[in-house]
Amino acid sequence: MAKSSSTDAVTLIRSLRSAYAATPTNLKIIDLYVVFAIATALIQVVYMGIVGSFPFNSFLSGLLSCVGTAVLAVCLRIQVNKENKEFKDLAPERAFADFVLCNLVLHLVIMNFLG
């Protein structure tokens, strides 16, 4: 039965890929942005693991900027996704404006805490 499980995995991945290809481009852009942010966060965590958390405020600041912007991007994706019945009435530009504002506030806080 190993063969079926491996083929099951391959089939799963294949169907995932094809389903994903159907997503609209702007959502893909957002996804890419999120991946970029999380990757940066992971690198920072690895660095902290190696050298220790000496300037803890800088570490938190850097980490939070990545995680925060990722979260905001996820919120944007939810609001902008046409398949989401909840946010049908919300204009995507409005969501984008919120996204920009929140990011600007986030970055102000990050800069203050960066030290």
Binding site: T25, I29, Y33, V35, F36, A39, I43
Partner: peptide, 17 residues
């Protein structure tokens, strides 16, 4: 730490924005 940024840019190009 700048590699993900680079990756982001490359990805955007790959997506054909």
């Amino acid at each position: 730490i700048f590699l993900p940024l680079l990756g982001f840019l490359i990805g955007l190009v790959r997506l054909g924005v």
